[in-house]
Design a protein around this nucleic acid. Structure first.
Lengths: 341, 341
DNA sequence: AATTAGCACTCATCGAAATGGAGTGCTAAC
DNA sequence: GTTAGCACTCCATTTCGATGAGTGCTAATT
């Protein structure tokens, strides 16, 4: 569909624009080493590319900038994955060499590194418990009326909540129930916990304990309560270094959006694994219609667990970011498996 | 030192400036209801106030704006604490009426509300475990080589870490040690844990278990490892609504600073309780030399636990914010005690 | 003696007009 | 098919004068 020459020119324009953030003229392309045609020829091609919707012109007498469609073509067909530079690789190693003693540390760190290496904003979703299995469940009484419920997954993931023990229920009864739950639920994946509770446990329980229904519903709530994954954000202020967001209002709408965890999770939904690039208006949220979002999932034992992502201007260093995300998501996977091996 | 009239005028200027963010002229003061003098008189007083260092002039033919010293006088002597408005109080009630099942929820929520009600940035430090006592300690094995250590405090605060079990140490031995620790350490304040470990436990342990030293050092690290309080940040993007930060570079240095948890904790250090106001250059960090930080501590059973704070421009609504922080810090205290009562 | 009206002066801000220059589209030559 | 040349467009920047808010000082007023 595009001639070789057109692809070269498109590539050159996008490369230049990513570097300079300013409309690219025919002359400057011609002066690059890799395109050996005269400005006039390039102008003709540029006019064609514009007609195809791959480029646009801010105003009549300006150079061209890539359109969303242009970036899309670039990402799909032209971009070269530089791989991860030695420097960056080394930084990653040293970072991860630090001893971490909970996964929040690993993931949070990953977010920090990502934003530092890219100068964009990184968003990382912690692992979903959904696909993990229950390892241990426990109640620890704090005083007469409240207790801490602790849930441990086979991945070492720990959740805890404070619950209030209803009147008229003894700690003894509670403990009996907890023991039974551990017996029956250990090894059960979280998404099955609810149904197993009802099918296998409800009956058996009613024999042992009074008030068992109250207790059961309480614990059911406790265990199955929505475990929304934690969101780690880093380098949000990097957005302000981008010339496209020097307008405070634009910056504000993006940074405001970044503060709403709900929206961020929404952004990451429906990512079936692998690396995904959403450019400009391809994103659902209006606030980031001038941004691109690149996401990758990281996994443990084949199960996709969570997502890491980079948000930047549409004029983003796609090649570098894609390589980096690719590298890092695998690194996290290795990290996790080494940890739990 | 200041005449009654000067105080009135200073108060009027600061009030106006806080509202408008623009230099205040003599005429506009004179037109307010509360100061009944002619512009000329007010001009004379303004000149005096400037000489005293309480006001300054951006340029010769502009109105006056308060200096740091001016704000300081205002906060110390003039500001009226409006109390918390009905609307705000109602919002606070509804927010806290939501059921929370871990303290992170309560504190995080507090940060959100604060930033929403004030339109400034809120920074909240979670409770330090320092002053709480150990309630329960437990190891849950995940696989052959690693286990999750869970530490519960009497406040319901839960910490967890993943540890790797050294070669040649059996899970049985580990459990013996853990049992002993629970026996001896329950009820001991965290800051004493380390010394108790050495004085009371080390000896006794050596009788029961081999390799006990290895285990002990591991667990000691685990329990006493630096528990730095969590930092909750909310409404950072509100900074961008302030006209003083419409300059992207200024905004960036502030927002960048806000991303560094270490710095934030530093900011909050050495606050002996009560409400504190740091204005402009009174703050140690250069990044917020154009900001004011108001902090308050919240406590539980008389023990000051953590800190809540509001960061805004020096041109901040001191009265409103101080009232609000005062109110909310007490609210959190009530909340916590009701929870654990 | 304190207060105020009057007035000359300062200086940031705003808009209009002038200038410069980067880049295009088109035509004609190679 | 490619390229040199040229007229044209339009943004960005600068310049300049007008505007007006606000001051400081002096002299009049209470």
């Amino acid at each position: 569909m595009l001639s070789e020459r057109q692809r070269m020119i498109l590539n050159a324009i996008i490369d230049d624009y990513i570097r300079s953030a300013e409309p690219v003229g025919s002359r400057s392309i011609s002066k690059r080493g890799d395109v050996t045609f005269s400005p006039a020829t390039i102008r003709n091609e540029m006019a064609d590319l514009e007609e195809m919707g791959l480029l646009e012109q801010p105003h009549t007498s300006a150079g061209r900038i890539p359109s969303i469609k242009g970036y899309r073509y670039y990402v799909d067909h032209l971009v070269t994955l530089d791989g991860v530079g030695d420097q960056d690789a080394r930084k990653l190693r040293t970072y991860f060499a630090e001893k971490m003693n909970h996964w929040e540390g690993v993931i949070g760190h990953a977010a920090t590194i990502l934003s530092q290496l890219t100068n964009y904003t990184s968003i990382v979703l912690g692992p979903e418990m959904f696909s993990t299995t229950l390892k241990h469940f426990q109640l620890i009484p704090i005083n007469d009326v409240s207790a801490v419920a602790i849930i441990v997954a086979n991945t070492g993931h720990v959740e805890h909540r404070t619950i209030t023990i209803p009147d008229g229920i003894s700690m003894d009864d509670m403990n009996k129930v907890v023991n039974l739950l551990n017996e029956k639920l250990t090894g059960v994946p979280f998404y099955k916990v609810k149904s197993v509770l009802h099918s296998e446990i409800a009956n058996e329980l009613s024999r042992y304990v009074e008030h068992c229904e109250d207790i059961l519903t309480l614990l059911e709530q406790t265990i199955t309560e929505e475990q929304e994954p934690k969101v780690f954000l880093s380098g949000a202020s990097n957005m302000l270094t981008q010339p496209e967001f020097k307008d405070v209002d634009k910056a504000k709408s993006i940074l405001g959006m970044l503060e709403e965890t709900q929206l961020l999770m929404q952004l990451f939904q429906s990512n079936p694994g692998g690396i995904h690039v959403k450019i400009g208006t391809e994103n659902a949220l209006e606030a980031i219609n001038q941004c691109s979002l690149i996401t990758a999932t990281y996994s443990y034992e084949g199960q996709s667990l969570g997502t890491i992502g980079i948000l930047g201007p549409t004029r983003m260093e796609y090649g570098k970011v894609i390589s980096l995300l690719n590298y890092l998501s695998k690194d996290i996977a290795v990290m996790m498996s080494r940890w739990y091996k």
